[in-house]
């Protein structure tokens, strides 16, 4: 009797400890979830708290100064968006083309596998390495110097793998029946892609473009040695060969080599400006698209 009872007790104890473990694990997981959210909120809150008071029309659109306090970041803001626009204008057609090929044409051949591996590899190449590649090819071999054009072309390398992936994924979510219907009606493959597949995949592709654009806007390492750390003397200079310092590069440059007395203030302002832009790109621009996606998804069923 005695030993059996003891055994029972032992077993009972064991179960209790396992149950407690289970409970503790759950508490820990909730804790981690809370930490992740709180950290982000604190991060964003702190940057906005420090930076928002600095933002004024003069700061956002004013000219920067090398030595004196009170400079703005107008040229840098312009350069950021100008280079983003140029790089997107080059990368979107290429990436959508490649994405279409991978989603619609590619069979499991050596060539396709090679292309897939290339896209994956390109996505993991550190951005500083892309920057140095741009420095060799665009800045030196093609004699572009540190310029908006050199920076924009190097940014293309960063955008391409991300855009190819979202295009391919968006196209794959388009129901096969759409395509089959179009082909059955006698349309060619190209007609089917242009008139049926791409329009259905468009919300997904545009979401991907917006998110990629947000990333490209904050990119720094790739641009220091291709677009440089100077800006044109003229405000809003669209000259492709002008110096192409962006907001993010300016923030880094100020902190590492800046001479202006109010550099902390300017840095705070740029931080807030970058975060606001990122928030707009991630939520304001993407939300209607997400809605569209959900709607078209619903009609598919």
């Amino acid at each position: 009797m005695m030993p059996a009872a003891q055994e029972n007790k032992e077993e009972y104890k064991h179960t209790v400890s396992v149950v407690t473990q289970n409970r503790l694990a759950r508490i820990m997981l909730w804790g981690v979830g809370a930490i992740i959210l709180a950290l982000l909120a604190a991060f964003l809150g702190y940057i906005l708290y420090k930076g928002l008071p600095v933002l004024s029309v003069h700061f956002v659109f004013g000219k920067s100064s090398d030595m004196l306090a009170g400079g703005g970041v107008g040229s840098q803001l312009f350069n950021s968006f100008y280079m983003l626009f140029l790089s997107m204008a080059v990368s979107i057609p290429l990436a959508v083309g490649a994405g279409i090929y991978l989603a619609e044409y590619a069979r499991d051949t050596k060539l396709t596998r090679g292309i897939r591996l290339s896209v994956e590899s390109l996505a993991t190449v550190p951005s500083i390495v892309l920057g140095l590649f741009g420095m060799i090819v665009f800045v030196n071999m093609m004699h572009m110097g540190f310029s908006i054009l050199g920076g924009a072309l190097t940014l293309v390398l960063l955008n391409l793998p991300l855009l190819v992936r979202v295009t391919e994924e968006s196209i794959r979510t388009v129901p096969k029946s759409y395509e089959e219907a179009s082909l059955a009606l006698g349309a060619t493959k190209l007609q089917t892609i242009v008139r049926v597949v791409l329009p259905s995949a468009m919300p997904g592709i545009i979401t991907g473009i917006t998110l990629t654009a947000g990333r490209a806007l904050g990119e720094t390492a790739i641009l220091i040695f291709t677009a440089g750390t100077t800006v044109s003397r003229f405000m809003f200079d669209t000259d492709l060969m002008a110096g192409g310092e962006t907001l993010a590069v300016h923030l880094w440059y100020l902190l590492s080599a800046g001479l202006v007395p109010d550099r902390d203030q300017i840095a705070n302002g740029i931080g807030a400006l970058l975060i606001i832009t990122i928030l707009i790109f991630n939520f304001v621009l993407v939300l209607p698209l997400k809605y569209l996606q959900r709607k078209s998804g619903a009609t598919m069923k």
């Binding site: 057609p93 290429l94 990436a95 959508v96 083309g97 490649a98 279409i100 090929y101 991978l102 619609e104 044409y105 590619a106 060539l111 090679g114 292309i115 290339s118 896209v119 590899s121 390109l122 190449v125 390495v129 892309l130 590649f133 090819v137 390398l157 391409l160 793998p161 190819v164 060619t188 493959k189 190209l190 007609q191 892609i193 242009v194």
Partner: peptide, 22 residues
């Protein structure tokens, strides 16, 4: 249709070309 196919293939092959160039 054939042209489109080759253009898409060219765009995709460009990825391989880029990584080798790097």
């Amino acid at each position: 249709d054939r042209c489109g196919r080759y253009l898409f293939l060219a765009a995709a092959s460009l990825m391989t070309l880029i990584i080798f160039a790097i």
